[in-house]
Simulated assay, not measured.
Amino acid sequence: MRIRATVAAVSGALALSALVVPAAQADDSAASLRPDAAKLRQAAHAASAKSALSDAAAVRAGARYDLNVTFSNFKIAKTLKVGTTNHVSTAVTYTLTHGADVDITAADFITDPIIYKGSHAGPDNRLYGNKPAKCTATSATTANCKGTIDVYPGAHELRNTDAGTWKAAAEATAFNGQDPAGEDFDNSKVGYASQDGLGTTLVQRASKLTVNASPEPVKKGKTITITGKLSRANWDRGTYNGYVEQPVNLQFRKKNSSTYTTVKTIKTNATGDLKTTVKATEDGYFRYTFAGTTTTPAANATGDFIDVQ
């Protein structure tokens, strides 16, 4: 289980044999190094966290050299729409530029894309991929890398206050044959690079919108009551709850048309519910549509057909 960066006390164990593996196993080896890379970047981003470790662990986590690696051309989806249970994964690409002394093909070299909420030095939360990024060399000192950002809302990786704009960063760790679990581990031989401000994305609480028009069928000129509900993911509780006091458009589409036209705008009530009335004029479909906010994506209800007689 992955742990929020603000409360993580990472404990990783790594056998030296895991560092020396055939090329075909390099991906698995790199993935097994993640706990120790997390320990290094935790120390780099929040030196105060070292007080939570033993003296020996603090030394092991802190002293590493600056790796000659920089990042650019970071690309990520504009929005991540996250519900309450389903795993959400999005691809990330970036360019890695490195010194001639950095071997990015080594089994114990790993690089990751990261998104974070708050400041880079003391983030409120951080998200990263299940596995390190894969890099393909484009020259002796550059490579195109592709990774993922993976989100597990069911594992409480997000709180409601996390919704909104997140910033992007990337990092790289070169273990250079060092075994972080070994007695002879020399952290001064481990290289680490981190770079923030590479981009932004919106992490949003997934939304749902419903509609029901009644009665049906209805006589022309009679009143139609149109109800619905706007809800969004509550990451704190793992449920969907009403989104209150939000403007929502009621729209109508004629039976043989493909275009919806806005009839009126109303607001959700204290529980996210919607209710309004209109006069029946002709056969067609009613729906509610929500434009979205920074924290919550847009949503359209599936049109509900009304038979006007």
Rank of each mutant, 00 (worst) to 15 (best):
A233P: 01
E157H: 09
F252E: 05
S119H: 02
G99T: 03
L127N: 06
T90Q: 12
N160W: 05
N160P: 00
V190R: 10
P113G: 03
S32D: 12
A38M: 14
H45E: 15
N269M: 02
H87P: 02
T239L: 08
I306A: 04
G242T: 02
A181P: 05
G191R: 04
I115W: 02
Y243G: 00
A301L: 09
Y260T: 07
T276K: 02
V211F: 00
A163C: 05
A23W: 07
A47F: 13
N241V: 15
H156V: 03
P217I: 05
S11E: 13
G292A: 02
A213V: 08
N144W: 00
H98A: 12
A213T: 05
S119P: 05
T95R: 06
Y192E: 09
S258R: 04
A30C: 03
G182P: 08
L33E: 11
Y243K: 08
N249S: 15
A24W: 03
R64D: 12
T261D: 14
T200I: 10
T161M: 02
T142H: 07
K50T: 09
G129Q: 01
S257N: 14
I306N: 00
P123M: 05
T268L: 08
V82F: 03
S72Y: 02
V82I: 08
N176R: 11
A52Q: 12
S231C: 01
A233W: 05
K39I: 14
N160L: 01
L40E: 06
K264R: 12
T259Y: 03
A8R: 14
G292R: 01
A168R: 07
A46V: 12
D186V: 15
V20A: 13
S17I: 10
A49M: 07
A30L: 09
W166E: 00
S119F: 05
A47I: 14
T173L: 11
F185T: 07
K75V: 15
T223F: 08
L158R: 00
F175Y: 11
G164T: 08
E282N: 07
N234I: 00
T302I: 03
G99A: 02
F71S: 09
F74T: 07
L230V: 06
P247I: 04
M1P: 01
A13N: 12
V82D: 05
S231Y: 00
G238N: 04
S17N: 15
I226Q: 05
N212W: 01
L198I: 09
L96V: 15
R4Q: 11
N256K: 14
T227W: 09
P215K: 11
D27G: 08
E171V: 04
K208E: 14
A163G: 02
A233R: 03
K75E: 14
T265E: 14
G242E: 09
I104A: 06
T165W: 05
P215S: 01
T294L: 07
F109C: 01
G284R: 03
F305E: 06
A169K: 07
S194T: 06
I76D: 09
W166I: 10
P132Y: 04
N300Y: 10
S89K: 13
T293A: 13
Y116S: 04
A163S: 04
T261K: 15
T271I: 06
V21K: 06
G272L: 06
